[in-house]
Nucleic acid binder design. Structure first.
Lengths: 250, 250
DNA sequence: CCCCAAGCTGTGATTTCTCTGAGAAACCCC
DNA sequence: GGGGTTTCTCAGAGAAATCACAGCTTGGGG
């Protein structure tokens, strides 16, 4: 069991670190190279150390020597089925939390019990924000201490609770839809940093989203109505660059 | 069916601990690897220390050195029958409470005699919530646990007694069916936390449930009629994410 | 100061999600 | 075995969310 601690990076982003200060280690297992690439990139960006494997045997072996703090595991692997992989992983690393990737339509496909141990899963196609958020949750909770505050993002008088999905501004509760919530979470995890529409699209929408890029503008517009309505605005446009969020004052 | 959600975890929940502060130890005995995996995962997540065995001899040996505070024992083992295992376990650990796992159609009168001593049993296929709850009960009653930790969950003016299965809201008694009770218990053990339908299905329904995911919606609907009927609602829907329970005010 | 690209937002079509009534089947207790 | 209870499927209604589109606004370079 890993006990984690948080620290604040120069950018103002809180990072998960292991007790000895070394970065968190995550093993990514998927047979599609494009997926492992995508995930590795996104997770490295979180400051985590990533190793990937393309099949069950590779996963078990990698787990043994890499000793990850969390595993992202596709349930559809070429050489062995997800449950077997899980079983073998658990033999070496009994407490490692696992984030499963499953197909959308695999409803009846033996999902039962998977989340039992505090594990979690997302369906393909996923959004990177979602994967990162879940993974953070898993890692945080696998640590001994459960500081609830860790699940709350704060920027100025705006708060977002990743557990309860509650959002408040100046103490007032604000209702957000699922997409609005994800978008705001992404902004708040990168306060005072300009995020391009492309970046936002890549992180908040599923990787196979094929729609118009102006959904971002649309959702920013929605968010502003709810977050900034009649107050000092916190969401700012940097024309030609993107958007950023920062505390109202200053 | 699945989208945004967080994992289930005992957050802010009172944990069972032994008098010396060390975690409770549970021995899981079953010959099906998938079952021991499933149980180990779920029970570890309760913060307990788990050891598992796949047959009678292994069980007896493990019990001897592991000295568990409780045992989960499948009555159908390959090498020796349940009663013999029980006998040998009791020779080493006379007071250890045992949770029997039996097939649905097993001769229940034989079990009935066994549970007289304060033991308990669940039939396969079981739900994790049920196993965890029974086990907690056994451990608490056996005195192995430190605190005479209360068996009553409270969220706002809603109370649920895990021992007597009594539920009240604002002082009024409420009758729930078994499934409704389990669902409410799961919600109340994770107050203010969004639980996805998938998670709920995983924990509250048996591990081999293959039905429609909308049973969850259905039972939420039942619960609301009984819990929230004509009052300030405590059960909330987070569209696209799941459900959560929280005190009415606030 | 004008113009155009970039950004904003109203409208409404479409899709998705949730709730719930009705009823079948299983279960349980006498 | 029978009647009440419980669990669960199915399907339809309704609500909510998502998104494309298009016209409007704005900002800043020339």
């Amino acid at each position: 069991m890993v006990s984690t601690m948080t620290t604040t990076s120069p950018q103002g982003r809180t990072e998960l670190l292991r007790p000895d200060g070394s970065p968190v280690r995550v093993l990514v297992v998927d047979d599609e190279l494009s997926i492992t690439e995508l995930l590795s990139m996104a997770l490295r960006y979180e400051g985590w150390q990533i190793r990937s494997a393309g099949d069950g045997h590779g996963a078990v072996q990698a787990a043994r020597e890499f000793r990850p703090d969390a595993v992202v595991l596709d349930m559809m692997l070429p050489d062995m089925d997800g449950l077997s992989v899980l079983g073998r992983l658990r033999r070496d690393l009994p407490d490692v939390p696992v984030l499963f990737l499953t197909a959308k339509d695999a409803v009846e496909d033996r999902i039962a019990g998977l989340t039992a141990g505090g594990d979690d899963y997302v369906t393909k196609p996923f959004s990177l924000e979602e994967v990162v958020a879940r993974l953070r949750g898993l890692i945080r909770r696998s640590g001994a201490a459960d500081r609830r505050s860790d699940s709350v993002l704060v920027v100025g008088d705006l708060t977002l609770d990743e557990d309860s999905h509650e959002v408040t501004r100046g103490g007032d509760g604000i209702h957000l839809t699922a997409t609005e919530f994800e978008l705001l979470r992404f902004l708040m995890r990168n306060p005072r940093r300009v995020l391009s529409k492309a970046q936002i699209l890549d992180r908040v929408w599923s990787y196979d989203f094929g729609g118009q890029a102006n959904v971002v503008e649309l959702y920013i517009s929605y968010l502003r109505r709810k977050i900034d309505a009649g107050r000092e605005p916190m969401i700012h446009t940097r024309r030609g660059a993107g958007y950023l969020i920062k505390p109202a004052v200053s």
